[in-house]
Design a protein around this nucleic acid. Sequence first.
DNA 1: CGTGAGCTTGAGACAGGTCAAGGGTGGTGG
DNA 2: CCACCACCCTTGACCTGTCTCAAGCTCACG
Lengths: 245, 245
Amino acid sequence: MIQSLQHLPNTERRGMLRQLPPPVLTRLLDLCSGTRDIPARRVMSRAGDRLHESLMLLEGIVLRHVSVSDGRRQMVAMQVPFDFVDLHSLPLGYLDHDVESLTPVKIAVFPHDALRKGVRTDPEVAMLLWRLTLIDAAIHRQWSFRLGGLRALPGMANFLCEIDYRLRLAGCGGDESFALPLTQNDLGDVCGLSAIHVNRVLRELREARLCSLRDGIASLHDRGRLRDIGEFEHGYLYDSMPGED
Amino acid sequence: MIQSLQHLPNTERRGMLRQLPPPVLTRLLDLCSGTRDIPARRVMSRAGDRLHESLMLLEGIVLRHVSVSDGRRQMVAMQVPFDFVDLHSLPLGYLDHDVESLTPVKIAVFPHDALRKGVRTDPEVAMLLWRLTLIDAAIHRQWSFRLGGLRALPGMANFLCEIDYRLRLAGCGGDESFALPLTQNDLGDVCGLSAIHVNRVLRELREARLCSLRDGIASLHDRGRLRDIGEFEHGYLYDSMPGED
DNA sequence: CGTGAGCTTGAGACAGGTCAAGGGTGGTGG
DNA sequence: CCACCACCCTTGACCTGTCTCAAGCTCACG
């Protein structure tokens, strides 16, 4: 599985991996010890756990969230295929949030020992891993922007644009629609809204023929307007998609 | 200035630098090309600018924000002394947000060429720099938590606790009060509130004898209760302060 | 001594939360 | 097989936190 990734031609490589020159990619993938499958809605690690491996997502979606006192959770990140999920646990040792699979998930396992050795002996791999975590941080900033700077509807539009863009980078998006099995409750945790208000916002988006979200399938009918409304600019993802400006 | 930092005894070292073993600190500071002074309220760099050096804050406070369509700005980070301000521009090349001095500021300049050489030849320095940016990312997550998960008053309490904690780590906090020359407008941009509502929240905090903010001086009268209300836990800063659990 | 930036307060509007009720669907156990 | 339950979606009515608008205050600075 992992080995097959190295041999994809450049244009076929996916997600964050698209950024890597092939030799570096090979050296990175050599540090992987194997793959693992995890069912949906499984807590993969908890805030404060000492971790000794980092995981790269190969299939499925992973959520990262912190819990709020009233029982709600605030989502702080969402990982799509070819994202590292918890690479930051390597320098940090433990995480400040929980990690949970949304769907059934396939992951590639990178033991910290191997990664540490890779970082020590291969500056290019080190720089690459660093860069990946920095894009993660840029996404965090965009989430702050969305939560603090946008109203409910633009915020939802912004989120859908981001996920659409990232899933298509990862090769998981269709032309119009993609799988997004988040409940309205989950979306509330993402956007800082009550589930009921999420429902109202989705209805508005649907009635404006902008996008719809049904049975775990998101369909974006008018990406242009959705991006305008959500003030979405993909620059913060530090990766331009072929065929878009 | 920079050189003098290396010779501080361990217990005297400040802010993020406290985490470094002295030899690594020395090697890092060797990469600094000099210092620079910048007046208050000066835009230091804009989103999208190509940067060729990174800055470590030595004195003063720096803000990082993105602009919203309606003219507001959303603050995405705030740097205190001994934080790197834009270290992430080294692997990323450009930033996705603006950087602005809040107060007059003294910075140490690290040319990217020097940093790149340091990273390539010194894995310990590389790991350290990586770690610093990861703590930045953890702070971003806390800001998402605050903006999406907390109401106005707890959010403000949370922010004040964070800044208090970080300023004291940096050796810039008194027992009860510290300098925080943010206007209520700025605080609104931090917490995703209108300036007017910031005013009301501050009044509530003052009348509850929790804290007050006047003439650019913040005074925390009851840190314990403030932390409870703001659901503040310092674990995400990955640095325990001597004398606090 | 005027002017502007920031702070303060009140009144009214509106976005979003809360409560309550009902419907659909899939899973489980009798 | 059906009954029941859990979970999710949907909608309506009402409540409240926050925004907006408007006015007046203070203080630093020209």
